[in-house]
């Protein structure tokens, strides 16, 4: 698997500076329906526009949404890779927006519980793709299942998508709490989606930080810090693009939401 022929052994001294291994970002949310996949794919497109090689991996095993969002009807999915029916190379699809996508497919329902097999397969897939990209985005499932927690644990950074609604904020907080309790993660990046006014993203993030400080950070040697990557305004263009099954970043790159996601991408690379 690793014995793919290398281009030339003479490049030793001139290895390209762009990371030898992709930065892995897990996108998660707690609650479903807050725009997690929307953020994942448009972030990928925005990063691709900035010249990065990006792969989005549907880590929402069993409940894949990525194919719908990207209007891709994959013949080959992660399921085929897991079962050995297909090579990983064949399962990686070019997505609109200039990035690659690795879809789970609906045959993955059996993987919605974590087993040693799923863990090994997922780890293997990520280890294989990581050296080929600059950025790998793991679009994780909603909720706080062991699959989600595992996927997040494989990532270099975690990005929590939250909307300014009580249910979303509660679930985002619960997710942050579980991540703090189970993984030594002290930095959580946050995107506030569907904001209605300027500054609302900051308010939501501060509010979450306040509760984290009070209930999660007590007695912790490495307090959990939330870092706001930006807010994405409620924008009719988002609904339009989703209904037309087009990538917002492609269809309406000048829309307020698209510009906001692009700003998040820039911030993420800082």
């Amino acid at each position: 698997m690793t014995s793919a022929p290398n281009k030339s052994p003479t490049t030793t001294g001139k290895t390209r500076t762009p990371a030898a291994r992709a930065r892995i970002t897990a996108v998660t949310s707690g609650k479903g329906g807050v725009g997690k996949t929307f953020v994942s794919v448009n972030l990928a497109a925005a990063l691709a526009r900035q010249g990065r090689r990006v792969l989005v991996l549907d880590a929402d095993l069993g409940l894949a949404n990525l194919d719908v969002m990207l209007d891709l009807a994959p013949k080959i999915t992660l399921h085929d890779v897991f079962t050995g029916k297909s090579s990983l190379e064949d399962a990686i699809l070019p997505a609109p927006g200039g990035f690659s996508a690795l879809l789970a497919g609906s045959g993955m329902v059996e993987y919605s519980r974590m087993t040693p097999e799923v863990r090994d397969q997922l780890l293997k897939v990520i280890d294989t793709v990581a050296p080929r990209y600059d950025h790998v985005i793991l679009d994780t499932g909603a909720g706080i299942s062991d699959v989600v927690l595992y996927a997040v644990s494989l990532a270099d950074e975690v990005l929590v998508v939250v909307t300014p609604e009580p249910t979303s904020m509660t679930d985002a907080y619960a997710t942050i709490k579980v991540l703090a309790a189970t993984q030594s993660r002290s930095l959580v990046k946050v995107v506030v989606n569907q904001t209605r006014r300027h500054g609302e993203g900051r308010a939501v993030c501060l509010q979450l930080q306040q509760v984290v400080d009070r209930f999660v950070n007590v007695g912790r040697s490495a307090p959990v810090r939330l870092d706001l990557m930006g807010q994405v305004p409620l924008d009719i263009a988002v609904r339009d693009s989703v209904l037309r099954r087009q990538l917002l970043m492609e269809a309406l790159p000048g829309s307020p939401a698209a510009l906001a996601v692009a700003a998040v991408a820039t911030r993420l690379l800082d």
């Binding site: 863990r119 062991d146 927690l149 644990s153 189970t182 993984q183 030594s184």
Partner: peptide, 9 residues
């Protein structure tokens, strides 16, 4: 935490 890389500390 099962399945998760954590630290002894």
């Amino acid at each position: 935490p099962q399945w998760v890389r954590s630290s002894p500390a």
